[in-house]
């Protein structure tokens, strides 16, 4: 299943039809309006819009909380059982993230998983921030883990934990989790386009 998905994606990418494919997955309308093709460099601010539509989604923000308590679910409630961040962002001594979350989603339990499943460090809290504030924090080495722009882009486009958002699996009752409103490859393209344009942040 997963294999097929990847193969299909690669095929479409090489055919230069990424957007056409992606739009079939869309859950919200804004990106649907984009014409297929996407060969021309995207306008940087449009790219910003797309990127931030993803980064402000609950699949991302639930694990970039404002305090020490992760959130979960489509309604972003506090994680059940009073789960906490812990010193290394991987949970408490005997209640580690890995106590329940493994390297990949578990379809039997509905527990999501990906490599390095953990909370973003407190400095990278996004909960409650506007998209402009999130973007600024991403570019601020004091708050982004000392990353250069290039490293930030790599995190945003290659880190398996980030990309999990597009394969979020099913919840405990077997219902598929909601994906971010922009397809993965379109998002990746947008992040790169935005960075190449000098990572402009609009005034809002």
């Amino acid at each position: 299943m997963k294999k097929n998905y990847l193969f299909y994606t690669l095929f479409l990418l090489t055919a230069g039809m990424a957007l056409a494919y992606a739009s079939s997955e869309l859950q919200e309308g804004d990106a649907m309006a984009q014409p297929p093709g996407g060969e021309e460099p995207e306008d940087a601010l449009q790219a910003f819009d797309k990127m931030m539509a993803v980064l402000t989604h609950k699949r991302c923000v639930n694990c970039h909380p404002a305090g020490d308590r992760p959130r979960q679910g489509e309604d972003s409630h506090y994680h059940n059982f009073g789960v906490r961040r812990g010193e290394d962002n991987h949970g408490l001594p005997a209640l580690r993230c890995e106590t329940c979350h493994q390297q990949e989603n578990n379809n039997f339990s509905g527990v999501p998983g990906a490599p390095e499943w953990s909370l973003a460090p407190l400095s990278m809290q996004w909960e409650g921030l506007s998209r402009v504030e999130i973007a600024r924090s991403m570019l601020d080495p004091a708050r982004n883990g000392g990353r250069t722009l290039e490293e930030t882009v790599r995190h945003l486009t290659e880190h398996e934990l980030v990309l999990w958002a597009w394969e979020p699996g099913v919840d405990a009752s077997g219902t598929p989790r909601e994906k971010p409103p922009v397809p993965k490859d379109e998002y990746i393209k947008a992040v790169k386009a935005w960075a190449e344009a000098g990572a402009p942040i609009p005034e809002e």
Binding site: N106, F108, S109, V111
Partner: peptide, 13 residues
């Protein structure tokens, strides 16, 4: 040595 909930832990791991 780590506490793990085995119902949600694939045997392959």
């Amino acid at each position: 040595g780590e506490a793990v909930r085995s119902c949600s832990y694939a045997a392959k791991f």
